[in-house]
Design a binder for these strands. Structure first.
Lengths: 141, 141
DNA sequence: TTGGGTGCAAAAAGTTTGCATGATG
DNA sequence: CATCATGCAAACTTTTTGCACCCAA
């Protein structure tokens, strides 16, 4: 039983084929797929799947906190990360990939303290780093 | 002569009425206006202004680096910050406002070092903090 | 049968593009 | 005259919504 599935069961959410397909596509997926990429994948398994369902399932998973929606891509196109452990993201403007940046020495407590002292309630943090990835630099493009 | 205007002149960009209106609306503006809000404001001064022009001018200003485009709002709706000094942003999911978070105690050098050591070139950083702002907490909504 | 999940289509929202007009130097 | 900025409209992309159908408890 995967982590995501158990959370869904715990919340009384039925595991329909489409939901399972999306979950299985996302789990362990480090490519930060867009809605369209997820849709294409699910459709290859269940050709009748509609995009509205994909949006609906992704909203469900986001609301349950088992996936994170990122808005790091251009034009605000949503993409999804099944890892909910705090980490950051790098976006390459050449090849449009999103790369996980694991943090071994990051202390966000100062930020949380600062924002908390202003009276705001923090629910999520996303650090987006923009630039050109090593692959594209090597290609000298 | 404002900062933005001088940069434009330095780059040989003509200061048309629409551009001036947008610049003057943005300078010192801490509300992080959306394209639509900027458009509405310029239109009130120059009613013939078209949205395409607003997009064009905002792209120009972004490319020149005198304003920052943020994708912190829902559905990726762009909003703009005339302050290009490194700072962070808090988004309230209740009232949809974006609040500057000045950083006196955040050290991003570890992040930059880490990303650099992976071979990526960093061009920009945005830290987005999501939650509920103090105003909305007070209102107990 | 009753609610929830799905598929389909249309609509909505934000953004981009092409082209003609008009101002500028 | 040549260039660039603008206005307008249409196209395009992503996301949301409404409704009917279908399945399962």
């Amino acid at each position: 039983m995967t982590n995501i599935k158990s959370v869904l069961e715990k919340n009384g959410v039925s595991l329909t084929p489409q939901r399972l397909a999306i979950i299985e596509f996302l789990e362990g997926n480090k490519s930060h797929p867009t809605v369209d990429e997820i849709y294409t994948n699910v459709k290859s398994l269940y050709p009748t799947t509609s995009k509205a369902t994909v949006y609906s399932v992704l909203k469900l998973l986001s609301d349950l906190g088992v996936v994170k929606e990122l808005s790091i891509r251009k034009r605000g196109e949503a993409c999804f990360d099944p890892s909910t452990v705090l980490h950051h993201h790098f976006h390459c403007r050449k090849c449009d990939t999103v790369i996980d940046i694991d943090i071994d020495s990051y202390d966000e407590s100062n930020i949380l303290k600062k924002v908390g002292s202003l009276g705001h309630k923090v629910e999520d943090i996303q650090l987006y780093i923009y630039g050109v990835c090593s692959n594209c630099i090597d290609k000298n493009t």
